[in-house]
Design a protein around this nucleic acid. Structure first.
Lengths: 241, 241
DNA sequence: CTGAGACTTCGGCCCTGGCCGTAGCATCGG
DNA sequence: CCGATGCTACGGCCAGGGCCGAAGTCTCAG
């Protein structure tokens, strides 16, 4: 709702898109990824303060949604309809798409492959683990929660994680948006348990002085057997065309 | 071309639509009719001088075309693409409403039942027509194109529409998202042909001074026989849970 | 030819809104 | 507990642009 309390009008939507900084922000998000406020400020070539104001307006108008994660706030388009509208406007503008600039900052390759995120795994390793558990039907993920299926409970118990913890209020499983991969990995008690067991088993080890983790040779054997994950899981993904 | 000589950007298009007076002008033209500068000034509730400036900008940007006739200048949307973009923006603008308040927006009931969208039918009537043709296997719709089947070609030819037009590059059939119904109706040459034939046959008639259309008694007979559509097609649909 | 009507151009007023510097709050790592 | 980082709130500056009155151009009617 806008200040008047009336529904948004086409003119208000147009005015929002009409500012170059905001247009750049929207275009940066048209791929569907979630980006942080800082990255979007960089994309729009304005300072963080200025971008913050723009993002508030876009979110207020319902063009963007935001999810806070730690000290980052991840913004994404609120709906595919918004993307469709933007593409439609591009058609009318007969604009050639500017070369797709990656707003990402230089991320240490080791960190991107695998790292800890508080108490659980992140990076391509964390995402691959989440993907594997979901793909094999061991875990189901919703918007902001998740659960182990029957087969998943069985697997986890064998692996050394109690799938139905009692006496704890901690959320068992929660999807956590991975900041380098922009896809969910597993947080909550499940994520913590997986990290702990992998460390205990010597499957992965911390890299000195960083949050990065490295998979050991023994670890690849174990991860392959238990979850079907191989070293290729750590290769950078191809960009879709 | 804008002053810089570069192609128009999405932000420039947005800024044009972002002014309430210009938005009113565009919306007044979305029905496909040509209106004079004076009429558009009245629609936008600004003086003739102000409207003149707006119309110059919109024309310069390629959103409108103008044709001088005597001492009048007639403006119309430059292309169905512009109409589609505007409808798309209305979809997004109406998305912002909180779910349960949405249907209560004051959309004129007549407009919601049936209206023209540039050169084709929209509203519940337009959607019902699209639904009927698809349900009976006369038309197949894809993401952004559509085609008549063999039975559809037969039906359309009998109805007075050439299903395989030659010598024209216009897209024959395209789904166009209906902003009040949130479901596709038929645009392209097929949509234009259906509207024209329905008007010519006296099945529907325009309501004075609006984009709304009304189905005549004769029209219900014809629509029922040709496409299996009855007056209940115009009843508001129940909200799905 | 003259006057009326439709539209545009010009000039000046004014205000909205984008921008950044500074400062403040929350979170994370050590 | 401390410093660094990510983000937001506030205040002031300033330009862009919307608006209208006055005046000019073109067309039509008589």
């Amino acid at each position: 709702m806008n200040p008047t309390g009336s529904p948004f009008s086409i003119a208000e939507i147009g005015a929002l898109i009409g500012d170059p900084a905001r247009a750049n922000i929207l275009l940066a998000l048209i791929g569907g990824e979630a980006l942080t406020a800082g990255e979007l400020a960089w994309c729009a070539r304005v300072t963080a303060q200025t971008a913050s104001g723009h993002l508030a307006k876009l979110t207020e108008a319902g063009l963007l949604t935001v999810k806070a994660q730690g000290r980052h706030r991840y913004f994404r388009l609120a709906s595919p309809l918004v993307a469709q509208m933007l593409e439609n406007m591009q058609v009318v503008a007969s604009l050639q798409l500017p070369p797709r600039h990656r707003p990402r900052t230089r991320i240490d390759e080791a960190l991107q492959q695998g790292r800890t995120c508080y108490d659980h795994l992140a990076g391509r390793l964390g995402v691959a683990l989440a993907d594997a558990l979901v793909a094999r039907g061991h875990v189901v993920l919703a918007e902001d929660a998740g659960a182990a299926t029957e087969s998943g409970a069985e697997l986890l118990r064998r692996f050394g994680i109690e799938p139905n913890p009692r006496g704890t209020r901690r959320c068992f499983c929660k999807p956590c948006l991975d900041w380098s991969e922009r896809r969910p990995h597993l947080a909550g008690a499940l994520g913590a348990g997986l990290l702990k067991r992998c460390l205990d088993l010597g499957w992965i080890e911390r890299v000195r002085d960083t949050r990065a983790v490295r998979v050991t040779d023994k670890g690849w054997d174990g991860l392959g057997e238990a979850f079907g994950i191989g070293p290729d899981a750590l290769q950078p993904k191809r960009e879709a065309a």
